[in-house]
Design a protein around this nucleic acid. Structure first.
Lengths: 150, 150
DNA sequence: ACTAGATATATACGCACATATGTATATTAT
DNA sequence: ATAATATACATATGTGCGTATATATCTAGT
């Protein structure tokens, strides 16, 4: 096992490099549309009515609350979303997309999917599916370790 | 293709989540040893004599020069490395590990490998190898796209 | 009704990464 | 020899992420 690996070819390091490559690609393609990669989960969650509060958005996007708070602050600053006080809960805000943002989501999602297709160039459908399955299992393991060790 | 995916289950998003999970795990295990995940490529490159300058370390670790400069500044601040002016090139510094750092590398590498084994719990050797191969192909594609589009 | 604890958000701080840009030193071509 | 270019590094700025902690509001139990 130790012989199989070198620090630069561990799954962990490879996943990290792949993530940065993906982020760079997606950022580049989404920038002209006025979005960043991290916005997408927020956008679709709001569009689909799957979340309306900061807390739910953080859960949905799988980030901690403070980063989500900061992202929402920037998105509000940039006119992507609006926040209105929740009438039923004084601690909470309800978050909504602006019209322009909503209208630009389809293009953004299409760009994201296209980026994924490009990144998987040369992969058979089976290989792409395998990658997704293996990553999902990896994530399950990592979640499990975190929950146990924390 | 569009039907196959949802924003949250694209390879790009999964890779990003896996990378954060890995980073969290590795950070937690390396912190007691006084290292961070990003340090490891630097440490082994210096140990193995594969790089001596900021530029080479950035290439080796596949990060841009400014992030590497900042990391090295922190590592120097924390006594992990030392920088001495390059006698042959007034623009450059030669970077070296301190003795204590060198002595702690084996433990850090072992912790990193153990984290990878834990993350791959339940994977057969074949599956682990497949994951590595698929990630490597993904990275090749992403690099190619970047070099073409840039 | 009141207090204890839970919850929603905000803020402070630090690291890792990116791009854009500046500065000093080397290198090259004329 | 010198002017133009390339290189090594530093710095500024912005995003994304994390932990730790504070504040305000809500909820439950008495």
């Amino acid at each position: 096992m130790s012989e199989k690996w070198d620090v630069l070819s561990t799954p962990g390091h490879l996943v990290s490099i792949a993530a940065r490559g993906f982020a760079r690609l997606s950022e580049a393609r989404l920038r002209p549309l006025g979005f960043g990669v991290g916005h997408l989960p927020v956008l679709v969650a709001l569009r689909d009515g799957r979340a309306h509060t900061q807390r739910d958005l953080a859960l949905f996007a799988r980030v901690e609350q403070p980063p989500m708070a900061q992202m929402l602050a920037r998105m509000e600053r940039d006119g992507l979303i609006r926040r209105t006080p929740d009438p039923d809960d004084g601690r909470s805000s309800r978050i909504a997309l602006t019209e322009t943002t909503l209208s630009r989501i389809p293009e953004a999602v299409a760009a994201l999917y296209q980026g994924n297709r490009d990144a998987l160039d040369g992969f058979t459908d089976t290989e792409a599916a395998q990658l997704v399955v293996l990553l999902a299992r990896l994530i399950t393991n990592l979640d499990q370790i975190t929950s146990v060790e924390k």
